[in-house]
Design a protein around this nucleic acid. Structure first.
Length: 213
DNA sequence: TTCGTCCTTTGACAAAACCA
DNA sequence: TGGTTTTGTCAAAGGACGAA
């Protein structure tokens, strides 16, 4: 959890744990998050979906560049109007097929949204047409800030991580990171401090519950 | 005992980040 | 620009532990 949630390297986490009396190697940390990260992420996602009100009527779709060994890849994400990450995955191309995959994945899990906000990339139009929802699309230079903003934590992490070495782990990390940051990031600025504290305590307690199982 | 399985450690590596 | 440090990753070996 330390590794995924904070911009720490594997060796940073090793040292942190050492301070707390846990003696493990950096390789073990890596092993742990590969092994258990996806499990936790899936569990968090499942619980969130169960407890979700049907208020996610507007989606924001977005893609971003990620460089792996000098090769260009694209990280696709679907975000709801509250800034919560619904879906994310990695492809090598930026075309209709990738956009379509994103849409289908998200819709299978969350149902159809009323409005879909995208940037001006034509692939979205083509993909939406294919599933017969083109009238629900809204594009705009500024409309999609919601999605762009949610890249920030990810970018910060990417820098500390000295870029991703393999597509496989980027995919995994994107999924786990989305779930974990959804779980812990309640809006600090909008809610009062005691309210935020209560939320954070609840999130932590729930996390401990997940670990104990 | 001897396997087999599942984790952990170790040491090395190349790529990226950093710094002057 | 070029050298140094830091990064995630890998292969190989080690170790704990239960089953046969």
């Amino acid at each position: 959890m330390l590794y995924v949630r904070f911009p720490l390297s594997l060796r940073n986490v090793e040292d942190l744990l050492h301070e707390r009396g846990v003696d493990v190697s950096h390789e073990t940390i890596r092993f742990w998050w590969h092994r258990f990260g996806p499990l936790f992420a899936a569990e968090i996602r499942k619980r969130r979906i169960e407890g979700m009100r049907s208020s996610r009527w507007r989606w924001h779709l977005d893609e971003m560049f990620v460089r792996i060994n000098g090769e260009r890849h694209y990280l696709w994400r679907a975000i709801d109007h509250e800034g919560e990450v619904l879906e994310s995955f990695v492809t090598k191309t930026r075309d209709r097929k990738a956009a379509l995959k994103l849409l289908k994945k998200a819709m299978r899990r969350h149902g159809r949204p009323e409005v879909i906000v995208t940037d001006r990339l034509r692939s979205y139009g083509a993909a939406l047409k294919e599933i017969g929802a083109s009238q629900r699309q809204e594009t705009g230079r500024w409309l999609n800030n919601r999605a762009e903003n949610s890249h920030l934590p990810f970018r910060r992490r990417e820098r500390a991580m000295s870029r991703f070495r393999r597509m496989r782990s980027l995919q995994k990390f994107a999924a786990v990171h989305a779930s974990v940051s959804n779980h812990f990031n309640h809006d600090r600025s909008l809610s009062s401090r005691p309210h935020f504290k209560a939320n954070r305590a609840a999130a932590l307690a729930e996390w401990r519950g997940l670990c104990a199982e």
